[in-house]
Design a protein around this nucleic acid. Structure first.
Length: 106
DNA sequence: CCGTTGACCCTTC
DNA sequence: AGAAGGGCCAACG
């Protein structure tokens, strides 16, 4: 039902690849920008399947927290990746979305 | 507050 | 080669 075009998948790759260093985006935001706000979770699934060439570490949940199970190292691996991007990660594995949240329109 | 549902694609048996 | 299950979230009741 209302299955999205394969473009959605391709758009996610493009969008994530366009996220600049030091910036973060939420799954719901990425999905919405790709034209599938109902697929916020799918973005995560795509991340799991998608090419690890993309900076999925710059994509976090709406709580500003890291992914539940970072495929390439879990929370710790995700946290390290973010810190490598000059992104400050709290000890609770959370980031300041208000400070790092990025929008492609900018 | 907590639990369930949802439009998917890929991996493994 | 065919079929079934799993899996980086978010919103609603």
């Amino acid at each position: 039902m209302t299955r999205v075009d394969t473009d959605f998948k391709d758009r996610v790759y493009e969008l994530v690849g366009q996220i600049p260093k030091g910036r973060l985006m939420t799954y719901g935001q990425v999905a919405a920008l790709c034209g599938a706000a109902w697929a916020a979770w799918e973005v995560g699934q795509i991340a799991h399947r998608g090419p690890k060439d993309l900076p999925w570490q710059r994509v976090v949940n709406k709580q500003g927290g890291l992914a539940r199970s970072y495929t390439w190292g879990g929370f710790e691996g995700h946290k390290r990746s973010l810190e490598t991007e000059d992104i400050e990660v709290s000890k609770d594995y959370r980031v300041n979305l208000d400070k790092y949240l990025w929008n492609p329109h900018l």
